[in-house]
Amino acid sequence: MEKIYERVSFTSKTSPTGYCPGCGHGTAHKLFARALEHFNLRDKTVLVYPVGCGGLAMPWINVNVIGAAHGRAGAIATAIKRANPENFVISYQGDGDLAAIGTAETIHAANRGESITVIFINNANFGMTGGQMAPTTMLGQTATTAQSGRSLEEHGAPLRMAEMIATLDAPKYVARFALHDAKNILKAQQGIMKAVELQVKGEGYSFVELISMCPTNWKKSPAECANYIDETVLKAFPLGVFKDVK
């Protein structure tokens, strides 16, 4: 028998990522690492990491990485790519990093049409710090800083970043996928391949939002998280490709 599925070649061979069991960050890393492998980009890659759970794979990914300050990955990725166009630049961010403190950097990098690939992990809470409300926390969803649940009156509705970014002229590919089952993961893999290919061909800005499970702070088992995504999360965050400029 021959291998028909194996681990990405350059990531750690000795220990897994630092993410919790069932966490979407792990899956997201697998997908973009696979794309780097597919396009043979590892040696040119510069990975801009956020502050938050997203950065927990730093020793595992074995790719040149720079740890941004919270919210500033969009600016760092912009500038590194401008000054080093031969590098392949990914801005990997969670919802606190990208949609709360980093909203300005996110929107302006997109609006300038920087030739970078943004991978946005939406797990509807601040994970690393223990489950506080994020801009993507859903109405009615509880969080440690919204203990009776998010309310429209007090907290406003969750931000739909992909749709917002898609209204800008410059971005070429903007999509949202989910990572809670094999069918959706395969679609997400295709989307990430497309986004990465755009940058490889130097054709501009791509933004991929990934609905991800956070078993620890959702207080659900990974399997229950998958059902929760189907029943609840996808209603607040519809999946789809919001922009795909040829």
Partner: peptide, 14 residues
């Protein structure tokens, strides 16, 4: 199983 595994723990042979 391998596709859904967040940690690439599974290798598949055929």
């Amino acid at each position: 199983c391998a596709i859904v595994c967040p940690d690439m723990a599974i290798t598949v042979y055929k």
